[in-house]
């Protein structure tokens, strides 16, 4: 999902990914560390040699359904190096590092309570309390379309600025909050 600006990390036309095989990345063949504020990876190639990627990008293959599985690891040209099938394949500090990296990239505050929800002139105005206790106000346009239902209980809200908010459990919301959002469910 990383899109480069004109001044982006990549220079020149993007090369094409021509590989047809998926390389599995796990604790057995890869190690991660932080470098210059970004994730760096060392991977053992099939010929036994180690290759260092100064900067790699993690990208969820199924960002709505599988948050911690099927994670593509891309190089600085956005070419896939391989896939981490389960984050839990890694343990301890590396596991922590990968989770943080994904949460850093996918900034999606979780909504705990809906304080108010008003609709006017095609916009819906939301005031919510997030899990970190912050009171956040945001605006949605074309509300029905911008609430993405994942399964029966989870919802992702996209606001006019491009922010994403997550309701982990619609049924788990308090009665008042549920009543407010019910119209859009």
């Amino acid at each position: 999902m990383f899109g480069h600006s004109r001044h982006g990390g990549h220079r020149g036309p993007l090369p094409m990914d021509t590989s047809t095989e998926v390389k599995k990345i796990d604790a057995g063949n890869a190690s991660f560390c932080m470098k210059n504020g970004f994730l760096s990876m060392t991977i053992k190639e099939e010929n036994g040699e180690e290759k260092v990627y100064d900067r790699v990008f993690l990208h969820r293959d199924f960002p709505f359904e599988l948050l911690w599985e099927y994670i593509s690891v891309l190089d600085s040209d956005q070419i896939e190096i391989g896939i981490i099938y389960k984050i839990d394949d890694f343990e301890g500090e590396t596991h922590e590092m990968l989770v943080t990296e994904l949460e850093r990239k996918y900034y999606e505050p979780r909504i705990k309570t809906i304080v108010s929800l008003k609709e006017r002139y095609g916009f819906s105005y939301w005031e919510v309390v997030c899990e970190d206790g912050r009171n956040v106000k945001f605006t949605m346009q074309d509300t029905f379309r911008n609430i993405i239902r994942v399964g029966d209980d989870r919802a992702i809200l996209l606001d006019v600025d491009g922010n994403r908010f997550v309701i982990e459990s619609i049924l788990g919301l308090d009665r008042k909050s549920h009543k407010k959002i019910e119209l859009y469910m």
Partner: peptide, 17 residues
């Protein structure tokens, strides 16, 4: 040499080269 912006999901990264 330059400042770089990169789009995350719901956020923007700003770095320098």
């Amino acid at each position: 040499s330059e400042i770089i912006t990169e789009q995350g999901v719901g956020c923007l990264y700003i770095s320098y080269r």
